[in-house]
């Protein structure tokens, strides 16, 4: 049997379409905590990245923090947190947020720092406040890069959130972990296909957001 046959069998089985372990429920679960992890990571990474980028200082410290966060093994951290804190949302969120913060933080910093200086100088010379300069001059130009950092983080979170099932959590990882335990390859392939589909949908969402949010004057130069 090939991967495609497994997938066909999985999606063809009507039992997989409803209930606690049904596809819709698992997809919603997966999306919810992926979104939550991304939101927390953005709430931490964006302000810090944008502000340090605006002041063009602190890049080295930021790089160290990002490297340290990247080096934390997501899976190990998950198991450790589960061992310490028991079952719950927090032990799942900590490793996912640690995974998502570095790309958000580093690209936000780089994006703002590398904005062409003359327009910023002109804005300051015209009497714009620093907040306005950051939000109305630097951010619109940095937006494509900032979004790409968020996109990388989002795809990683969606893809990695599968391991949450190892600590008895829901989401699409259930199919993979359970399938592996039960030697049920239909389930594994089905779960993997769904995660890939979700990750691609995430890419599409970010592409659409960039289309709408990025000014045509900026889009062209990227």
């Amino acid at each position: 049997m090939t991967v495609i046959d497994f997938a066909r069998a999985f999606f063809g089985d009507s039992a997989h379409w409803h209930g606690e372990d049904g596809i819709p429920h698992r997809v919603v679960q997966h999306l919810l905590y992926s979104a939550e992890a991304l939101a927390i990571a953005a709430a931490i990474g964006l302000p810090v990245g944008l502000l340090t980028g605006h002041h063009r200082r602190g890049g080295n410290t930021l790089a160290l923090v990002a490297t340290a966060a990247r080096a934390l093994p997501t899976f190990g951290l998950l198991v450790l947190m589960f061992t310490w804190l028991g079952f719950g949302l927090v032990p799942v969120m900590i490793p996912l947020v640690a995974l998502a913060v570095p790309p958000v933080l580093v690209t936000a910093y780089e994006a703002v720092r590398s904005v062409d200086p003359p327009p910023v100088d002109a804005a300051r010379g015209m009497g714009m406040s620093e907040t306005r300069i950051l939000l109305q001059v630097e951010l619109p130009v940095a937006l494509p890069l900032v979004l790409s950092g968020l996109r990388t983080a989002a795809v990683q979170v969606v893809s990695t959130a599968t391991i949450a099932a190892y600590v008895s959590f829901g989401g699409l990882g259930r199919y993979i972990i359970d399938g592996l335990a039960q030697k049920d390859y239909e389930k594994v392939v089905g779960g993997a296909t769904l995660v890939v589909g979700l990750a691609l949908a995430t890419l599409a969402v970010f592409w659409a957001v960039a289309r709408i949010a990025v000014s045509p004057g900026v889009r062209r130069s990227h």
């Binding site: 327009p119 010379g125 900026v218």
Partner: peptide, 15 residues
């Protein structure tokens, strides 16, 4: 804001 400011390459806001 009470002084116009013009720089080399204009420094226009590309967005």
């Amino acid at each position: 804001r009470s002084m116009g400011y013009v720089i080399q390459n204009a420094g226009l806001f590309q967005h």
